[in-house]
Amino acid sequence: SEFSSRSGYGEYVQQTLQPGMRVRMLDDYEEISAGDEGEFRQSNNGIPPVQVFWQSTGRTYWVHWHMLEILGP
Rank of each mutant, 00 (worst) to 15 (best):
S1T: 10
S1V: 12
E2W: 09
E2T: 08
F3Y: 10
F3W: 07
S5F: 14
R6P: 14
R6M: 13
S7P: 11
G8S: 11
Y9L: 10
G10S: 10
G10T: 11
E11Y: 11
Y12Q: 10
V13D: 07
V13M: 15
V13N: 09
Q15K: 05
Q15H: 00
Q15V: 01
T16P: 01
T16V: 08
T16R: 13
T16L: 10
T16A: 15
L17F: 10
L17H: 00
L17D: 07
Q18T: 13
Q18A: 08
P19S: 10
P19H: 10
G20R: 04
M21H: 05
M21P: 08
M21Y: 05
R22H: 06
R22Y: 03
V23P: 02
R24P: 04
D27K: 14
D27M: 11
D27G: 07
D28P: 06
Y29K: 00
Y29S: 06
E31D: 15
E31F: 09
E31S: 05
E31V: 12
I32G: 03
I32L: 15
I32R: 01
G35D: 00
G35V: 00
D36S: 11
D36G: 01
D36Q: 00
D36F: 09
D36E: 10
E37G: 06
E37R: 02
E37P: 00
G38C: 07
E39K: 00
E39P: 14
F40A: 05
F40L: 02
R41D: 00
S43K: 07
S43C: 06
S43G: 03
S43R: 02
S43D: 15
G46M: 12
G46K: 13
I47P: 02
I47Y: 15
I47H: 14
P49G: 11
V50Y: 07
V50T: 11
Q51H: 04
V52F: 03
F53W: 13
F53P: 02
F53V: 11
F53H: 10
Q55T: 13
Q55W: 14
S56W: 05
S56Q: 07
T57D: 04
G58S: 06
R59T: 12
T60G: 05
T60D: 06
T60Y: 09
T60Q: 09
Y61W: 07
Y61D: 04
W62E: 06
V63G: 00
V63H: 03
V63T: 02
H66C: 05
M67D: 12
L68G: 08
I70T: 00
L71N: 03
L71I: 14
G72W: 14
G72P: 15
G72H: 12
